[in-house]
Amino acid sequence: MHPARKQRLILVLLLVGLSSAAAGFVTYAMRSNMDYFYAPTAFAAGEVPFEKRIRAGGCVVPGSVVRDSDSLDVRFAITDGREQVEVVFNKILPDLFAEGEAAIVTGKLQQGGFVRADQVLAKHDENYTPPEVAETMQNKANCVGDAKI
């Protein structure tokens, strides 16, 4: 093999190897930032991993919102029309958060069977439902109460 050709081959193989390593590192780094969406039915079936960052969504169950008078702690339940999951949140809720409306929470499932949320997203108007929630909510009847999904 000609020396120049051999040198080009080594360079190409080195670039392919470095590119593959970089792609592997990026993929590995992104794995820790992925949030998987689960409906309340998946919680009841035991499909949700503990202490891993997840998203859950559905309608806020009317009458389930309980606010602590001494802190920002709020407890509420979300449902997909079949099952419910309890959520604990200790920050200020979005202005459009309401009972009977769609919401998505991001947090971790705790050993007590509730989600400790670090973010709550509320439906922002009557014409939009987040895609994750729309998939779990087949029709208006699935949402407990007078919600408009």
Rank of each mutant, 00 (worst) to 15 (best):
25 F>A: 08
55 R>L: 14
124 H>S: 10
37 F>H: 14
79 T>V: 02
7 Q>N: 13
127 N>E: 10
76 F>I: 07
55 R>V: 13
117 A>C: 14
104 I>W: 09
125 D>S: 01
89 F>W: 10
100 G>V: 01
139 N>C: 03
34 M>F: 10
14 L>A: 02
39 A>M: 12
129 T>S: 08
26 V>E: 12
78 I>R: 06
97 F>A: 04
94 P>D: 01
66 V>N: 03
147 A>I: 14
112 G>K: 02
4 A>I: 10
139 N>V: 00
132 E>M: 01
36 Y>I: 13
130 P>K: 05
127 N>M: 04
16 V>T: 09
68 D>T: 14
115 V>Y: 03
139 N>K: 03
102 A>P: 01
104 I>K: 07
32 S>K: 14
134 A>W: 12
130 P>V: 10
102 A>K: 06
54 I>G: 02
146 D>S: 09
73 D>M: 12
15 L>I: 00
35 D>R: 15
116 R>D: 07
8 R>N: 14
73 D>C: 07
86 E>F: 04
9 L>Y: 05
7 Q>G: 03
131 P>D: 03
81 G>W: 11
42 A>F: 04
91 K>Y: 09
63 G>H: 09
147 A>W: 09
16 V>D: 05
34 M>N: 10
106 T>V: 07
124 H>R: 10
138 Q>P: 01
142 N>K: 13
87 V>N: 05
62 P>S: 02
7 Q>E: 07
87 V>T: 00
88 V>P: 01
84 Q>F: 15
95 D>C: 04
138 Q>R: 12
51 E>R: 06
146 D>Q: 01
29 A>Q: 08
53 R>Y: 13
129 T>Y: 11
45 A>R: 04
91 K>I: 01
105 V>L: 11
106 T>D: 00
